[in-house]
Design a protein around this nucleic acid. Structure first.
Length: 497
RNA sequence: GCCGUUGUAGCUCAGAUGGUUAGAGCGCCGGAUUGUGGAUCCGGAGGUCCUCGGUUCGAUCCCGAGCAACGGUACCA
């Protein structure tokens, strides 16, 4: 039996968990400030509630982890937080205040090929407003996202919230003659192509808009991806309208009403955010943003990190999108006969965390470990004394533990070192049986400051001298144990700043 | 799914034209009767050389297939 982690999943260390909690507290504070309420839905929903595609018998796990209940109904692990939220709101519609403003966080699952920074289980942190048709709600989302980025310590200029409108894209497609039901497939291909702009560049996208593109980058390498089959003029119009190339001749294609509507909404959003003091350094209109291809119906936005961040190997990586969202007027109404407009966004917590880590914006220094009371003698009487010391320290609010392994002193010291113990407590027979100047029993303890000890040890040559010196160590009466430890902790805290 | 690269100790990697007992560094464990982390020294544990099949007297090495990891690309509601 080989112990192994399934691919696409991650074990989390103590540091990671603490860092995420720290981060989520900051995000939560912003959401609360905006007046959103916490809510939570389960990890599992009926498959048909999650989206319009039911897993068929042949491929029950395409993209989503699914399984059948004992009553044969299909259940799935949620792949985002929006669909379960929509189900909850629809189910409790009468009871909830409208607009319903809520936030939630948790794990989501995708049964897809994992890659660097792409996991099959990851954490999202969402906020949504349901029951509001106006663009003011969308503008608020964009501003809140900007506030979150700054609350996390990302300096202005190192991120940008890019805003677009699905109606603009739809309008472009209409203009070049891709409107109508019969062109739905090609529209999708065009949108996907635009979405790959940052990955493939303008020319790559142009190939995908036209005949297609070879995976490997050149002719015959890799698989051939069939394109949208647009003419050169159509492709150029699309690229021009999303602002990545110069327009050629005008008037070749008619302008579209949908396009104009979308732009009107974008202008309103821009006015609203500018009026609130959010300039283009934070929130920027960008017609090339595509986002989630299926359910968005209006404004869409994306939070992008602009900072060039070195990864563990020292290479510069662009993290790109760390969150996004938009208007999804159809999601809740799917469950109800009436239209229910809604808008929201989602932060990719896991991804953002690795970015913050790389930026040094995350306090990854581990928490101070417990004070370790070494076990020098294993008779019940001594163990009782050690246990009492631990208990006293805990009473004083100091993390502490008695060594519970079976090894000798040296391994115990190694253990304390590895645990990040600020100090250890040592009491053998010599200390326990000490007497004062009058010959009365006066039990002592030795307390070793591990931080000071390590510093002092650096200047000691040779193991014998090192052992002899016992750096950072002091002997105090047992009664002064707690006070002395407290002093060491305070000094170390001051040292750390 | 498709294309490519790679699979040898916990990690990073050597290795020989196909020949007895497969190595290094790091890490891990241990090292004087009451003791002490790091460094140094000494010792130790740890391997199906990815799997299966083929060629061969003999395969970790050559051949075939499979699996896995990594990268790119596609899909990603």
């Amino acid at each position: 039996m080989l112990a192994r982690l399934p691919r696409g999943f991650a074990d989390r260390t103590a540091d990671d968990i603490r860092a995420v909690e720290q981060m989520m507290a900051k995000i939560r504070a912003v959401y609360e400030l905006y007046g959103f309420e916490p809510a939570d839905q389960p990890l599992i929903e009926y498959t048909d509630a999650l989206g319009k595609f039911l897993p068929d018998q042949d491929r029950p796990n395409e993209g989503v982890f699914s399984f059948q209940d004992d009553d044969e109904q299909w259940l799935s692990l949620r792949y985002d937080l929006t669909a379960p939220m929509a189900r909850y709101v629809a189910e409790n519609f009468e009871r909830l205040p409208k607009p319903f403003r809520s936030y939630r966080s948790g794990w989501v699952f995708r049964n897809e090929k994992p890659g660097p920074g792409r996991f099959r289980q990851f954490m999202q942190f969402d906020a949504d407003t349901v029951g509001t048709p106006g663009v003011a709600a969308d503008a608020e989302m964009a501003m809140m996202m900007a506030d979150v980025m700054e609350a996390l310590g990302i300096p202005r200029g190192d991120y940008v919230i890019r805003v677009n409108n699905r109606k603009v894209l739809d309008g472009v497609l209409e203009a070049i003659g891709l409107g109508g039901e019969e062109n739905a497939g090609r529209r999708l291909i065009v949108l996907r192509a635009i979405d790959k702009l940052d990955k493939l560049g303008v020319e790559g996208v142009r190939q995908l808009l036209g005949p297609g593109r070879w995976d490997g980058g050149k002719e015959g390498e890799g698989d051939f991806t069939k394109g949208a089959g647009l003419s050169a003029q159509q492709a150029n119009r699309v690229l021009a309208d999303i602002g990545v190339v110069e327009a050629l001749g005008d008037g070749e294609f008619p302008s579209s009403q949908t396009f104009a509507d979308g732009q009107g909404e974008l202008m309103q959003i821009e006015q609203l955010v500018v009026a609130s003091g959010y300039g283009p350094d934070r929130i920027r209109i960008d017609p090339s943003v595509v986002r989630g291809l299926e359910y968005y119906t209006g404004p869409v936005f994306e939070a992008e990190l602009l900072a060039e961040i070195p990864n563990e190997d020292g290479q510069i990586v662009r993290f790109g999108s760390v969150g996004g969202g938009g208007r999804y007027d159809g999601l809740v109404s799917r469950f109800r006969g009436e239209p229910v407009p809604a808008t929201g966004f989602s932060i990719g917590v896991s991804r953002l965390m690795s970015a913050l880590k790389a930026l040094g914006k995350l306090d990854t220094s581990s928490t101070v470990g417990p004070v370790v009371v070494l076990v020098m003698d294993r008779d019940t009487d001594s163990l009782g004394r050690y246990q009492k010391m631990v208990s006293d320290l805990r009473q004083a609010g100091i993390r502490a533990e008695m060594y519970l392994g079976g090894s000798g002193m040296k391994p115990q010291m190694k253990y304390a070192d590895r645990r990040g113990a600020p100090c250890v407590v040592i009491q053998g027979g010599n200390e326990r049986n000490a007497v004062d100047e009058n010959g009365n029993p006066r039990p002592m303890v030795q307390i070793k400051d591990m931080v000071a000890g390590a510093e002092l040890a650096a200047n000691i040559e040779g193991h014998d001298a090192y052992k002899e010196a016992r750096p950072g160590q002091m002997t105090v009466p047992e009664a002064e144990l707690v006070g002395t430890v407290r002093g060491i902790l305070a000094a170390q805290r001051a040292e750390r700043g």
